[in-house]
């Protein structure tokens, strides 16, 4: 998976969101060890301090925790993972609804079309 950084938002925030995405999609499975700050920073081509901040933010969100011996571990707290997955899903839905509204569909019509499409 590529790292994508846009221009108008703080880099650490973008990194943190993309790390969270990797966690909920299973790139970094629950309980596994996250790569070190330096590895991740080198991979994304960003400053280690920025990556550090992104990882700290993940810890604050409860998606990762620091471990004395193994570095940083992905949480096994399914509730926390589920919460993030839900947040991501809401963002996807929001984007869908916005796109549909641009095409002239109401929320209900959009929901109906979605149901038809999936059935």
């Amino acid at each position: 998976m590529e790292w994508k950084l846009d221009d108008d938002r703080p880099i650490w925030l973008q990194l943190s969101q993309q790390l969270a995405r990797r966690i909920v999609t299973g790139t970094y499975p629950p309980g596994s060890r996250l790569p070190s700050v330096r590895e991740l920073a080198a991979e994304a081509g960003v400053n280690p301090n920025t990556m550090q901040r992104a990882l700290s933010h993940l810890e604050q969100e409860g998606l990762a925790r620091a471990d004395r011996t193994a570095g940083r571990l992905v949480t096994q707290d399914t509730a926390a993972l589920e919460a993030v997955r839900l947040r991501e899903a809401e963002a996807v839905i929001q984007r869908y609804l916005e796109a549909m509204s641009a095409l002239g569909y109401s929320r209900e019509q959009a929901a109906g079309l979605l149901k038809e499409g999936t059935s």
Partner: peptide, 14 residues
């Protein structure tokens, strides 16, 4: 860099 992006809402380059 973070402060500039947060306050200005754009890149340092801009």
């Amino acid at each position: 860099v973070d402060a500039i992006r947060e306050q200005e809402g754009r890149s340092v380059d801009a």
